[in-house]
Design a protein around this nucleic acid. Sequence first.
DNA 1: CTCTTGATCTTCT
DNA 2: GAAGATCAAGAGC
Length: 204
Amino acid sequence: MAPRKPSSSNASTSRLGKPLKRAFFARSVHEVAPDLIGATLLIDGVGGIIVEVEAYHHTDPAAHSYRGPTPRNQVMFGPPGFAYVYRSYGIHWCVNFVCEEAGSASAVLIRALEPTHGIAAMRRRRHADNVHALCSGPGKLTEALGITIAHNGLPLDRPPIALHARTVEVEAAIGIRIGITKAAELPWRYGVKGSKFLSKPFPK
DNA sequence: CTCTTGATCTTCT
DNA sequence: GAAGATCAAGAGC
């Protein structure tokens, strides 16, 4: 048997913190986004530790809300503490947490998780074995957790969604957002530097 | 390892 | 008609 490398995962030592209330999201999206790093997201008990997010705001040309309400983005214009789910490239679902206040149209895109709960279910849904490939991207994690348009507009503090505060301090790394062309230089990506569960590494 | 391409929904031009 | 908050597979190095 090959020797096992030491793991940087904190999954085995992490515990669920107190549930996040809806009020957690009622402040600047740029405060909420880094505060979500290390929190645990579960859908019907399946999920993991948030290791990568991005912030979007209606004044940001890269945001879906930049050009005003549409059928797709209407949840972004509602009150904070709800899930905004959209179809990406016609194929994938992506999930956001609405922040600030009604009309502010700001949200945090959840981009990657470190799987901790229900890993067997995630492997089945993703048709993938490698735990590092289960939730290392916004489209991957929705598939692993079973998030679809059916979750659009659901409150973040009621079943089937559960969010738990982190129990240990983490230093959130900051970088530029992934996969956008407008406002591409803004440093509104937050995550755990060096995590093996990111969609992309943070540059040194 | 990097680069290219196909999948095909919602919005904008 | 084109672009987009993406992913996986295949070609090439």
